[in-house]
Design a protein around this nucleic acid. Structure first.
Lengths: 222, 222
DNA sequence: GCCTGTGAACCTTTTCACAGCA
DNA sequence: TGCTGTGAAAAGGTTCACAGGC
């Protein structure tokens, strides 16, 4: 799995558990919408596609918020997870690279819905600078540092070609960004204390390709 | 020490190692482009952002292809990994959901470059059916099964809203697709023998948000 | 001397199994 | 009775350290 950063003094939540919290969060939102007030680890597990013991263990890292014989109170648990994930306030996001992907991301509603505010778009191509996308003017790459600082950006999304990824990451870090989501098909190096998550389409397809190729030899699930 | 009593190619490669093969693959392509002929585990490790022992162990699952005191022959290793990943032939891909994201994916060059051929685009919206995207006519969701069968689709990419994801997955599986890449923010259930990889933007951002929230004082040594 | 290949140690994550409590 | 919370066991993954061939 992918390590994504430094954790604090208090309760130490394993990285694998952290990566599942957003899934539980989504399941709980869905349950809330259905008007149900209590949920069992079994139900949550089914919705999240994991084992019930795993759900209980993961949630136990946050505290003992369930009731034996009953389950978890949906609203309360949702609140706990929201706080843990830092979703109680908005995060200003910058997207670097306004090609097909950057464009799609800028318009992605799932972003804004969950408190991630795209406050800056930046591109290296002078032809794109000044262009308006989703009510936001595209800024110049040269101004990235200044834009990050003046708009208080905390999360940088890299949607550039692989060749530009490291430079952009360096600039983001220099400007104080400590959280980076990298869509470029390149490994980027960052100093300690900066979290990077990678999303790589080609890699994912190649992993599928591996299992598809080996399926005749032995059936398996990725 | 695991020795399966079966024939030559029945080596079992751990999932974690499989997930890194595409990274080594990309590094090796880059090295090839530079005209270098031999590479050490150390160099590959740096490029892949992992430990050198990890590289050697991962590669040892494929066989003993290195030379002690020297390193790995780049062209040879690249060929071995390509075969292992099933990249020696093309894979016909269908994209379901031609919204912002589906559109961006259909135009993504990194796909075609690596042998993933987008041979079908499908959408539920009648207004989109018939539309041409990247030289391909958008098909109707109702025809998904037929399209998958007639075009020999082996990989399905789900780029629909969450609410449609499970139904689309069911249809893909019914039509014989065994590899699914899911971009919809939903957990999908599939039968044994079908691989699913998930790419979820909101989840990734929420994980970053967690570490950002739990980070201590924002101080960097420059 | 150099760098691979790999058992063994170590660490993380998952699953089991059951005590504990509403 | 039913379902959580959690030690303990099992499985999986990573790193160490050094033997072994070039």
């Amino acid at each position: 799995m992918q390590r994504a950063g430094t954790s604090s003094n208090a309760r130490k939540i394993p990285g694998a558990a952290v990566a599942r919290l957003p899934i539980y969060y989504r399941a709980l939102v869905e349950i809330t919408d259905d008007g149900v007030e209590t949920v069992s680890s079994e139900r949550l597990a089914t919705m999240a596609g994991v084992n019930a013991a795993q759900v209980r263990k993961d949630l136990s890292y946050l505290g003992s918020y369930g009731t034996r014989g009953v389950g978890y109170e949906v609203a309360f648990l949702l609140d706990r997870i929201s706080r843990e994930l830092g979703l109680t306030h908005d995060w200003p996001v910058a997207i670097v690279g306004v090609g097909n992907l950057g464009h799609a991301l800028a318009n992605y509603a799932g972003l804004t819905d969950r408190g991630f505010r795209v406050l800056a778009l930046v591109d290296a191509d002078p032809a794109k600078v000044g262009m308006r996308v989703n009510d936001l003017a595209v800024g110049a790459l040269a101004d990235l540092g200044e834009i990050v600082r003046t708009r208080g950006i905390t999360i940088g999304i890299i949607a550039t070609p692989a060749s530009a990824a490291q430079d952009v990451a360096d600039e983001l870090v220099a400007a104080g960004v400590q959280s980076i989501l990298n869509f470029a098909p390149a490994v980027i190096a960052v100093p300690d204390g900066v979290s990077v998550r990678k999303v790589d389409l080609a890699t994912e397809l190649q992993i599928l390709s591996f299992y598809q190729s080996h399926r005749r030899i032995k059936e398996r699930i990725a």
